[in-house]
């Protein structure tokens, strides 16, 4: 009997596409609220969400990590969370103990890569797909 393959790791900052899971709502202070349980980003949800501003500005989605097919993949790992946690410095480690309940942690690419410190960085990340008129200057 063949061994069951492990399910793919999940990117916690994927694009809003059918098949993705809704995992986060961006709050007024710019941090993110984890949903207790991922919800399917159904076609109906995406259609409704696209009536407003870009869904990626207001939510975060999880989807299977595509590894080398993603521009953020660097040297066999996700470059995003490395840079995020690097920017946070010791603050990431300090907050790691209080990681909140998360519906994808067991399969999360970021958590698998660097452990609980990823959770502290995660709460500050918002995905955006392109520059908008109300975006801060570079």
């Amino acid at each position: 009997m063949p061994e069951a393959e492990d399910p793919p790791r999940l990117c916690p900052s994927a694009l809003a596409r059918p098949g993705a899971a809704l995992i986060v709502v961006v709050q007024a202070d710019g941090t993110v609220a984890l949903l207790g349980r991922p919800l399917p980003a159904t076609a109906a949800f995406l259609a409704e969400a696209r009536r407003g501003r870009e869904p990626e500005r207001r939510f975060r989605f999880a989807a299977p990590c595509v590894e080398a097919e993603c521009r953020q993949w660097t040297g066999g790992r996700c470059g995003v969370i490395d840079r995020v946690v690097g920017a946070l410095g010791p603050e990431a480690d300090a907050g790691a103990e209080g990681a909140r309940p998360c519906g994808i942690r067991r399969r999360c690419r970021w958590h698998a890569q660097i452990g609980p410190a990823a959770c502290e960085g995660c709460r500050l990340v918002i995905t955006e797909t392109r520059a908008g008129p109300d975006r801060a200057p570079a």
């Binding site: 710019g30 521009r71 953020q72 960085g121 990340v125 918002i126 995905t127 955006e128 392109r130």
Partner: peptide, 8 residues
Amino acid sequence: LGIWIDVQ
């Protein structure tokens, strides 16, 4: 406090 990931 946020950090943006510009996918593109």
